[in-house]
Design a protein around this nucleic acid. Structure first.
Length: 480
DNA sequence: TCTCATT
């Protein structure tokens, strides 16, 4: 049966296509047209999209410039959360160019405080080696001022002054030239050469951070926010242990799932964790976990245990101990993902439930008890009730050896990556309001629970290792 | 003083 295409071309075979010069792109089979794109089509990255807009909402906006081959809103792989950006490929290269020039930085979608971004995606091959970071600008200097400063060195493709939410300049900018040489010329002439009015030192002109550097900086910032640098926390203070745990946990997760995204509450992005995992290879982190047996040094008080958290004082916020200085023989396996295997059944930990019920936390033989640190202030009252175990049998986990400072939220966050957490409860001593260092997490399905056990049981946090196991069935818990 | 996100 013959098919009439939009071109009015009749074909006997039922197939019709057009090339990039054609007015229609598509492979028509019978009634259905499968979109085809130009060989030189450009995949566009669309940024600054309100998170409530989905593909169907965006389509009309972009269809104006041509037939859309593919439009995908980016979602977090794990949480499904809208990332505020999308990929867009038009059937025709020309449409992409039109859309880019008509839309990029030209209009702001409702609710956004920055204009929409429409530009070739990273995957389209680009050189970030032509983008400059300009620092020590005057706060009054606008994009135009910056442009004027740089235009003599070449073609400026992009010029953005960084601004805070209130629109106030942060005193720095990005300037993208059309070539590396142009950018280099600008650096040579402008860097350090003049001091802008209101700036505290002379103009900084350098290549913008690479992705790797950016990741490092973010990790650094995060470490700072989490308080790793505070003297209080260096001694296993609250967030030191916390962030450390998060890193490890994420690394474990990556190992277990070959790369999942963290939940949105987490301060750590999966990409950063991937970076961290990579850095471990360079000996940057490598929590020097002592294998459960085979060394004379007990886990937790080896010479290396303290640096595992204290070392973040290093330049980049992570243990920058050279391999030979961490007290480990170089033959000691360093796992590239930062995870050292540990037997699921930790021999040093007695059944915490029984301990809790007995009202006695004895850690004889456990190095943790050697210190007077609050982390090791252990519960001495029996837990009062186990009111709820919301999940079905096989979905409820018992977690022991939580850091003292972990609350419900942290517990939840730690286990969110493994599935839908129905509840997360850290048990708290009524008198002191202190965590008893154990809690329960419930998932909505058994396999999430199993995945969590798999990844998190035996997981080292500070000097402790998590014990993660299925919660015993209710009746088994009742001694009477 | 390194955006905001890049399947």
């Amino acid at each position: 049966m013959a098919t009439v295409t939009a071109n009015g071309v009749q074909q006997e075979n039922g197939f019709s296509t057009t090339n990039s010069a054609g007015r229609m792109n598509g492979l028509t089979i019978g009634q259905n047209t499968i979109p085809m794109k130009d060989h030189d089509a450009i995949k566009l990255f669309i940024g600054q999209i309100p998170r409530n807009l989905e593909e169907k909402d965006l389509k009309p906006l972009f269809e104006e410039f041509g037939k859309i081959y593919e439009l995908t809103v980016l979602k977090d792989r794990f949480t499904g959360m809208h990332k505020g950006c999308a990929f867009l490929t038009y059937c025709a290269r020309e449409s992409a160019l039109k859309a880019q020039s008509a839309l990029h930085e030209q209009k702001t979608l409702p609710g956004m405080n920055r204009p929409i971004q429409v530009k070739p995606a990273d995957s389209e091959g680009r050189g970030e080696d032509r983008k400059l970071f300009v620092g020590m600008l005057g706060k009054q200097q606008s994009e135009d001022d910056v442009r004027r400063l740089f235009e003599t060195f070449g073609q400026i493709e992009e010029c953005t002054v960084l601004r805070g939410p209130d629109g106030a300049s942060k005193g720095c900018a990005f300037v993208k030239f059309s070539s590396h040489a142009e950018a280099q010329a600008a650096i040579n002439s402008l860097h350090g050469g003049q001091t802008m009015p209101g700036a505290s030192s002379s103009l900084v002109v350098k290549f913008a951070d690479t992705d790797k550097e950016r990741t490092l900086r973010r990790m650094h910032q995060m470490a700072g926010q989490l308080g790793i640098f505070s003297p209080m926390t260096i001694q296993f203070g609250a967030y030191g242990a916390y962030s450390h745990a998060m890193m490890q946990q994420q690394a474990a997760l990556m190992a277990a799932t070959q790369g999942s995204y963290l939940n949105p509450m987490a301060a750590i992005a999966a990409a950063q964790m991937q970076q961290m995992a990579a850095f471990n290879v360079n000996g940057l982190v490598a929590t020097p976990m002592t294998p459960s047996s085979g060394t004379s040094t007990p886990p937790g008080i080896s010479a290396t245990a303290v640096p595992s958290i204290a070392a973040p004082i290093g330049v980049n916020g992570f243990s920058a101990l050279p391999p030979q200085s961490n007290g480990q023989p170089t033959s000691e396996p360093i796992y590239t993902n930062g995870i050292h295997p540990y037997p699921a059944q930790s021999p040093t930990v007695a059944d915490p439930l029984q301990q809790a019920y007995a009202g006695v936390q004895h850690y004889a033989g456990d190095p943790l008890s050697l210190t007077g640190h609050p982390l090791f202030t252990l519960p001495c009252n029996p837990p009062v009730v186990f009111l709820s175990s919301p999940g079905p049998e096989g979905c409820n986990l018992f977690i022991y050896h939580l850091p003292q400072e972990f609350g419900d939220a942290e517990l939840m966050q730690m286990f969110l990556p493994f599935g839908n957490v129905i509840s997360a409860k850290v048990f708290v001593d009524r008198a002191t309001n202190q965590s008893k260092c154990f809690g329960f997490v419930s998932f909505d399905n058994p396999s999430s629970a199993q995945a969590a056990i798999q990844a998190m049981n035996g997981f080292q946090i500070g000097m402790k290792r998590l014990k993660v196991q299925l919660k015993r069935p209710k009746d088994a818990n009742r001694p009477y």
